[in-house]
């Protein structure tokens, strides 16, 4: 689905580098790394919001050659932070996710149907007539996620979709993402490492703007993780599951 080779994107003094990466349909990939390591920039580049050099093949075609509207039908992005300065209700906010399928003037009845289904799937149907700006932080996050899911695009890029969401809904969202990823490519930025290693199978680790490791769960080890996060991390393996905890700052790992 996504093939990258020699990607370089510069922004001020920061440089993002991805030498080589290939992601296919049916994958749910966690993107990890410390603050400022380039996770969000990476998602921006993938969604076409930031200029880059290098080769980027999306769905078998050169990314640059895709018309804008086509790109947005293929890729949807949940930004880390969002704001809205109109008193729109939840249903309409979710509906706006369907924009790339419209003529710019109005939404079709199919858009309406999809929206209703998505609202139910995300367990926010009961909120549909509430004003978006009057919701709690976690509810907003779920609405924005619903807005992205409503696009139903083959590639979904989610920048911290779980932040501010309560535990119960975190798990519901993860289950939903797993279900959706059966025929999609989903990348999500996560900060909770122990949650990530428990739930996901493939991981991209960013350090200072560079994609350092691209690992499957079975290849994870304490050394590499400690290096990436610059704290000493310990694994506890228990049957099929894996637990990670931090022992605090570790200078040797630097």
């Amino acid at each position: 689905m996504i093939n990258l080779k020699g990607i370089v994107a510069k922004q001020g003094g920061f440089t993002l580098k991805v030498d080589s990466l290939s992601l296919s349909r049916g994958e749910l990939v966690a993107v990890l790394g410390n603050n400022g390591s380039g996770k969000s920039t990476f998602l921006s580049v993938l969604s076409g919001l930031k200029p880059f050099r290098g080769k980027y093949i999306l769905d078998g075609r050169e990314f640059g050659s895709l018309p804008a509207i086509e790109r947005h039908r293929l890729i949807s992005l949940l930004p880390q932070q969002s704001s809205l300065n109109m008193p729109f209700d939840v249903q309409y906010v979710v509906l706006t996710g369907r924009y790339p399928y419209t003529d710019g003037r109005g939404y079709s009845s199919k858009d309406m149907e999809c929206t209703e289904e998505t609202l139910r799937r995300l367990d926010i149907y009961h909120l549909r007539h509430r004003l978006f700006n009057e919701l709690s932080g976690g509810e907003r996050q779920r609405v924005l996620l619903a807005r992205v899911i409503n696009r139903d695009s083959p590639v979904m890029l989610l920048d911290e979709p779980l932040s501010g969401v309560d535990l119960r809904h975190q798990h519901e969202i993860i289950d939903l993402l797993k279900e959706l990823s059966s025929d999609k490519t989903i990348l999500l930025v996560v900060h909770d490492i122990s949650l990530a290693v428990r739930e996901f199978k493939r991981f991209l680790f960013f350090v200072k703007g560079t994609l350092r490791y691209d690992l499957y769960r079975e290849n994870l080890d304490e050394e590499r993780l400690s290096e990436v996060f610059q704290v000493r991390l310990r694994f506890i393996k228990n049957d099929e599951s894996l637990f990670v905890y931090s022992e605090g700052k570790n200078r040797e790992a630097l």
């Binding site: 969002s82 924009y99 003529d103 003037r105």
Partner: peptide
């Protein structure tokens, strides 16, 4: 303006959200 009703609505979001929704 009529051709851009939906785009105008999406302008009320932050720029990143609007851009990634496909609004120029």
């Amino acid at each position: 303006v009529r051709r851009h009703y939906l785009g105008l609505d999406i302008l009320s979001f932050d720029d990143t959200t609007a851009l990634s929704s496909g609004v120029e």
